[in-house]
Design a protein around this nucleic acid. Sequence first.
DNA 1: CGTTGGCTTGAGAGGGCTCAAGGCCAGTGG
DNA 2: CCACTGGCCTTGAGCCCTCTCAAGCCAACG
Lengths: 188, 188
Amino acid sequence: MYALILENISRYVTLDPQEQAHFTAALQHKTLRRKEFILQEGELCRYDHFVIKGSLRQYEIDEEGREHIMQFAFEDWWIGDWYSMLTGTPSVYNIDALEDSEVLLIDKNRLEELFLEIPKLERYFRIIMQHAFVAQQRRILFLQKPAEERYADFYSRYGHFEQRVPQQQIASYLGITRETLNRVKNKQ
Amino acid sequence: MYALILENISRYVTLDPQEQAHFTAALQHKTLRRKEFILQEGELCRYDHFVIKGSLRQYEIDEEGREHIMQFAFEDWWIGDWYSMLTGTPSVYNIDALEDSEVLLIDKNRLEELFLEIPKLERYFRIIMQHAFVAQQRRILFLQKPAEERYADFYSRYGHFEQRVPQQQIASYLGITRETLNRVKNKQ
DNA sequence: CGTTGGCTTGAGAGGGCTCAAGGCCAGTGG
DNA sequence: CCACTGGCCTTGAGCCCTCTCAAGCCAACG
């Protein structure tokens, strides 16, 4: 159950077996049905989640009632509302499962303690945060390009996940309507 | 010279005087003329920069030769290409000064060493990275809104800096043309 | 089999872009 | 001291990409 997350961590820092055990002891396991929420608008986000099976989405609903997908999360990805966790304020996001899924979750306060006990763990989170930041920079750039290029970029990075996500969700992630995404894909 | 940066750090972690001295010893000071580059496309980004006076911009030039501003940096902000620093690959960004400026810079390798010597420093960088990530999330959301709302959001957060930056630069940051920004501002 | 969710296609409207011209101001050199 | 130049802001006209609204289709499912 912990193989995926430990392998992920080992890409950036080296934990000895004792530290690994100490870390995994802090994790909870949870299975999710499709459409099940792990966070809803207005709640505090108390956990960071690591996906070991399935897929989730984080989205915001604007004043007009439209969904805007901030990010997807597939196997081997972290997902949570880092703003809510950082500031302790209620979240503006919803996070739910796109497929039946399994996640490992860690309490944010327990994680802060672990950072003091195992500084390498804080290093790991610093690095994945940096990666996430960089991925968003790219997204900001592409949001300024026409629909066709946005989709092409998405396809080149996440094309292998495309079948698992409804087109409407991809359109929302790309900041375009389902109709235009459909037209772009059919090159019409 | 170090008052601003130490005050910034103290918002998130507490360094004792010895650690402060150890950290500031790793900093270099640099004065910049308006339009002077601290990073150009194709170079490796070896330093992270903390602005103590003036303002800088980080931008990318696309295939059509258009500038896209990724971020501004005013007093009390960090700026650098974290992707290039993280991966050791050449940068796609340019960073230059919008006004005559002063920055403190720190070598990325020296910084990695300091993280091991002073774990609290890694915590500090983890936290500001998290803040930067969250700020970008908001930007991603607003890039999906009409020009007027983008400007309103910019104004509400950075309005006090507006006089110091040419309108074209703000338009580029907002992902619109100078003409539309001008029309939005004149509510015409 | 009716219902629901997702994909497809069409027609019209509109926000923002492009291209173009003109104005204002500060810095510079004759 | 003043004309010239470059940087920046302003305004107009036409066009295009994308959105909106509306239908219709198909597959999965209870």
